[in-house]
Amino acid sequence: MWKSTPGTETKPSTTPNTAPVMSTTPPPRPSIEPVRSKEFASEMAHIGKSVLIRGELSGSEDLYLDGEVEGNIALLEHNLIIGPNGRIRANVTAKDVVVHGKVEGNIQGHERVELKKSAVLNGDISTQRIVIEDGAFFKGAIDIRKEAKSEPKREMAAAAGYSGSSSSSGSAMSAQRSLVETKFEPKG
C-alpha cells in the first residue's frame, strides 16, 4: 500500500533544507564535449578559454584546460586534456596528456601522450606510449621510456618490423641500383 509505483514517486521537496543539496552530475558543457576522450569522460576540473594562469598549476584530479598557462603544470597521477583553445607555455607533467591546442614546453606523460590533429607542440615528449594524429605539428624530441612489463613485446615488434621489410627486398632492389660510392678524407 505504501510502496511507490512508477510515475507516483515522491519528488524531492523544494523546501529549503538545513544542508545544501549538491548535484553529483556536472552541468553540461556542450562546447567541449566533442574533444573529450571517452576515457576521460568522468568528472574533471575545467579551466575555460578566458582564463590566464601564471605560475605553478598543480592538482590531484583530472583537468581539462582550455585557457592559457605560463609556468608549470603538475598533475602527477592524474590526466590532463589541453583543449583546442589551450595555449600553454609551461612544462607539463601528468599521467595521460592529450593535446588539442598549442604547447611550448616539455611534456612528461607517465603513461601516455596523445597529439591530436590540431596540436602544435614545440618541446620534448617523454612517455611510455604515444599517439600522434596526422596533421599535428611537432618540433622536438620523443623519448619513449620503456615499460618493464612490455619489454619483450617491444623487442619482438621491432624485430618483426625489420624482418617484414626485408622480405620484400628483392622487388625494391630491382627498381634501383647503387651507382657509385664516393669517399672523402674525414675532416672532423
Binding site: 627498381a175 634501383q176 641500383r177 647503387s178 651507382l179 657509385v180 660510392e181 664516393t182 669517399k183 672523402f184 674525414p186 675532416k187 672532423g188
Partner: peptide, 11 residues
C-alpha cells in the same frame, strides 16, 4: 666534409 657519399639512382 663527410666521410662518404653513396648514390642510388631511381627511375
Amino acid at each position: 666534409d663527410f666521410k662518404s657519399v653513396k648514390f642510388f639512382l631511381a627511375r
